[in-house]
Design a protein around this nucleic acid. Structure first.
Length: 893
RNA sequence: GGGCGGGUAGCUCAGAUGGCUAGAGCGCCUCGUUUACACCGAGGAGGCCGGGGGUUCGAGCCCCUCCCCGCCCACCA
């Protein structure tokens, strides 16, 4: 018998087992392996990333799924890889360059890219190695990278094809510009935060002041300087330097007389007109809106409708250019905001500045305030793609788990704008467009190396390549056996936070190019938060490092803690103490295993004896095991990790350890070899099943125990590839469950009696018992005696009334104990009096209920019956209590 | 501004189709050296199930209403 150390020590077990699995090739799958294909592709973490709790949860779930499917005999593959993460990675290397006192422009494009690649080779992808510590059974031989050669080929194919289909176009549009990253961003790379800003009201004076009747239009205001004009408001005062119109609502009577009127720009030698456009909300502010076509998306659209001038006032670092005039040129946009207000005030045109709460867009990478800016970029037209994806989701070809994520997802698809895919950075897939000497544009699968042709400088949004992931990892556009076997993939596991960034685009592009959904199921788990539901962040100081957890408590405990908090549709709270609790469970399991292994005497899990030969407690355990097994399977199918964990946890701890193991100790040590052998068979069978069911959640401790239990040699003989058990509902036995519940209840009541009367467990005393089923009690007398720590149990048809005896009621009967010398009579009398009062109150309640005619006539029969039984029980309990009281009083005399 | 989750023990959460005495883990209190485990065992205290109204014999669960919290989406200056 191999020795198991006393307390479970994950560090002594986990690394060796992991290497053993790896060496045996158990992580690897081939397309022609046996079994129905099952595949998961990892949401590729940024190559710059290191493992945080979110990754730990996401990958633990994937690992649990893939391990279970592998055990179920599927040809299961989990493809790992990383994302080149354009801006994020470029930022990392740029920071290094800054520390060296240089920058990428000084280095030049080619040298810079070499530098990034070198960084990637030495420091990148570290996160995948960290996943191994968690026990991730990914097929490491299949590791891919969104920017490797094969994936780049897929990217180019998709770009060129979409361009040929007219779905990719180049155009001058208003885009989100990050002045720090010097690049365009897509809409979803902008994060909106509510901030208290300011709303500055000021007046554009009418160009022609003479002869204007101030009462000719209600919308006319007089500025502090006395001039007549139109009041407007803005949160970004500097943008007035690029205003080219004022818009009012067509039906707003206050302004009807002013349609077409010209106002004068106070700082520039130009005038512009008042236009009527239904976009304007007459209720807001003055009802007149200043229009800055080059720096506001709405204004840009209005400009299109009215053919307005578009005046770009800012360079790509957010500094105002000379077009705004000497006074403001060269100022940063935020500094210019104050300068403009000052200047307006000097001219007597500023009306007032008030606080104003509004949403401000920030760069999701560097948190800099985004500037809407007119720019020539590449776009993907999304409408048709989005409709195709929405249709597939509605048809159920891909389903969300939990289903509540479906509606928001579809709603998002409906309101999609075109996707700006070009980025003004260097690290990424370069746009396959070339510009000829005559200004011609060619988009091409092959590099164009003709004289005079230059390639577009920009690269693609990182998500452009990651959207291809579910098929690019398998070698698309080449028709590989992998693609044939494992695409579409089975389940995508991800937080709901990237449904828009990533899930939507995979769906769209996959349907467009392959006609298939990329995955059958999207399992959206929650986001990991601290124990009070607060987001983990460095500034709150509540970040938990999963690698620390693995180091301190082990991978199994870390996994269990994450999964048991992961209920469908809910975020995942996590505290370090909870991982400690999970570790205790691993230890419990280890110790039950240790107990079993020390006593199984070579018994291997196998056939069970016929039910008729088994003891009550055996049949009870097997019946419970089947229920637990079925419930566990159902919870796995529902991706309900909390229920999987809770079900197995309670079975192992409360039923297997606390009752079954205690119950069979006597048989194992006794002199009936057949009785001992039956207990060993049941124990071995149960342990085997539980270890299999628990393996996806806690792979290490289960594997270690299972090998010892079964004598498996490791390597290919591994729990990792053992068969997933099938429940055998033939073992369900309601009689056994009911009968054993009676035994449990009696034992528990005796424990309670001890505890309440200060009778130590070591004090043995004789007990007389009677009940509805005396045969059962007689049959289980030995077991009851040992579990309750009795001296002796006498099963009687009826308990004779004697002085000094106290009654213990339990479900199914009553027991009597001689109190003399056993307990403190006065304390017990006081307690019983209180108890009796409580019982009487409860009895009154039930009596009242049964006296209610409506209840008796309208409630279902079984409910009424139950209340009647309850009343009888309460009456009997009260009678027993009174008996005890009089016994005690007799004792005191 | 629009959607979606939530509010049950000190904390974090379970509580199918309304129906036994509302549960668990952690924390707290008492007791315990029962030969797998003190990373343990036994017992216990602690709940106007967010407020109000309604339906019903009966509501944590269904309906209405209000309050509070969290998240996502959004081009009102």
């Amino acid at each position: 018998m191999p020795e198991l150390s006393k307390a479970y020590d994950p560090a002594a077990v986990e690394p060796d087992l992991y290497e053993d699995w790896r060496a045996a090739g158990l992580f690897h799958a081939e397309p022609d392996d046996d079994g129905e294909p099952f595949s998961i592709v990892i949401p590729p973490p940024n190559v710059t990333g290191s493992l945080h709790v979110g990754h730990a949860l996401d990958n633990t779930i994937q690992d649990a799924i893939i391990r279970r499917e592998r055990m179920r005999g599927k040809n299961a593959v989990w493809v790992p890889g990383t994302d080149h993460a354009g801006i994020a990675t470029q930022n990392v290397v740029e920071k290094q360059l800054a520390a060296e006192g240089t920058d990428r422009h000084e280095l030049g494009r080619e040298a810079f890219l070499e530098r990034v690649w070198a960084w990637k080779e030495t420091s990148g992808g570290h996160i995948l190695r960290q996943l191994e510590k968690l026990g991730a059974s990914a097929d490491w031989a299949r590791e891919v990278f969104t920017f490797d050669e094969k994936r780049s080929e897929a990217v180019r194919e998709v770009f060129v094809a979409l361009h040929e289909q007219g779905l990719i176009y180049r155009g001058e549009r208003l885009i989100n510009w990050c002045i720090r990253c010097h690049t365009a961003l897509s809409d979803i790379e902008v994060e909106h935060e509510d901030e208290v800003g300011e709303l500055a009201h000021f007046v554009y004076p009418l160009a022609e002041q003479d002869g204007i009747d101030p009462t000719s239009a209600e919308g006319l205001v007089r500025a502090p300087d006395g001039s007549l004009g139109i009041a407007v408001a803005t949160t970004r005062a500097e943008t007035m330097l690029g205003d080219t119109a004022i818009a009012v609502h067509p039906d707003d009577d206050r302004y009807t007389a002013l349609h077409g009127a010209e106002v004068r720009h106070p700082f520039q030698h130009r005038t512009f007109a008042v236009v009527a456009d239904a976009y304007v909300d007459p209720e807001f502010g003055s009802g007149a809106v200043k229009i800055t076509p080059a720096h506001d998306p709405n204004d840009f659209e209005i400009a299109g409708r009215h053919d307005l001038d578009v005046l770009d006032i800012m360079d790509d670092t957010g500094v105002l250019t000379e077009v705004v005039g000497e006074r403001f040129a060269g100022a940063d946009r935020l500094a210019a905001r104050d300068l403009v207000k000052e200047a307006l005030a000097e001219l007597g045109l500023l009306l007032r500045v008030e606080d104003h709460e509004h949403a401000v867009g920030h760069c999701s990478r560097c948190n800099t305030i985004i500037e809407p800016r007119l720019s020539l970029q590449w776009f993907v037209a999304m409408r048709e793609l989005a409709d195709t994806a929405a249709e597939a989701v509605r048809a159920g070809r891909t389903r969300f788990v939990p289903a509540s994520r479906t509606q928001p997802f579809l709603a998002w698809l409906e309101n999609l704008h075109d996707w700006c895919i070009s980025r003004q950075i260097w690290w990424g897939h370069r746009i396959p467009a070339w510009y000829g000497p005559g200004g011609e544009i060619r988009v091409s699968r092959e590099d164009i190396e003709e004289e005079g042709w230059v390639q577009d400088e920009d690269v693609l949004d990182t998500w452009f390549s990651s959207q291809l992931w579910p098929f690019s990892v398998f070698g698309w556009p080449e028709e590989t056996p992998e693609l044939e076997t494992w695409f579409p993939t089975s389940t995508l596991v991800t937080g709901y936070d990237i449904n828009t960034f990533w899930v939507s685009r995979m769906l769209m592009i996959s349907l467009w190019f392959t006609g298939e959904v990329p995955f059958r199921v999207v399992h959206n788990h929650g986001l990991v938060r601290d124990e009070h539901g607060k987001k983990m962040s460095k500034s709150f100081g509540n970040v938990i490092d999963p690698l620390d957890l693995v180091g301190t408590y082990g991978a199994d405990a870390t996994r269990l803690a994450l999964l048991r908090s992961s209920a469908p549709g809910a975020d995942v709270p996590l505290a370090e103490e909870w991982v400690e609790g999970a570790k205790r469970f691993a230890n419990k399991l280890w110790n039950v295993g240790g107990f079993a292994l020390a006593r199984l005497d070579g018994t291997r899990p196998g056939e069970l004896p016929p039910a008729g030969d088994l003891d009550l407690v055996d049949r009870w355990l097997l019946s419970r095991l089947q229920s637990v097994h079925a419930a566990t399977d159902a919870a796995y199918e529902d991706y309900d990790w909390a229920t999987v964990c809770r079900t197995l946890y309670h079975f192992v701890w409360d039923e297997l350890a606390d009752w079954y193991v205690e119950a069979i100790k006597g048989r194992l040590a006794g002199d009936d070899p057949d009785a001992a052998a039956r207990a060993r068979q049941v124990l071995a069978f149960t342990a085997d099943t539980v270890l299999r069911l628990l393996h996806p959640v806690m792979p290490f401790v289960t594997e270690a125990l299972w090998r010892t239990l079964t004598g498996a040699a490791g390597g290919a003989e591994s729990l990792m590839v053992a068969a997933w058990p099938e429940p055998d509902l033939g073992w369900r036995d309601e009689d056994a469950e009911r009968d054993f519940a009676t035994v449990q209840d009696l034992v528990t009541e005796v424990h309670r009696f001890r505890s309440q009367n200060g009778v130590a467990p070591s004090v043995r005393f004789p007990l007389e018992v009677t009940g509805e089923d005396t045969a059962l009690l007689r049959d289980q007398a030995g077991l009851i005696t040992s579990l309750a720590g009795l001296q002796d149990l006498a099963v009687l048809p009826e308990i004779p009334e004697r002085e000094g005896m106290s009654t213990i009621r339990f479900r199914g009967g009553e027991a009597a104990v001689q109190l003399a010398g056993l307990i403190d009579v006065d304390a017990e009398l006081a307690r019983l009096t209180k108890e009796l009062a409580r019982l009487t109150a409860e009895l009154d309640r039930v009596d009242g209920k049964l006296a209610n005619e409506s209840f008796v006539t309208r409630a279902p029969g079984d409910v009424v019956q139950r209340e009647r039984e309850r009343r009888e029980e309460l009456r009997a309990d009260a009678a027993a209590l009174r008996e005890r009281v009089s016994s005690l009083e007799a004792l005191r005399r």
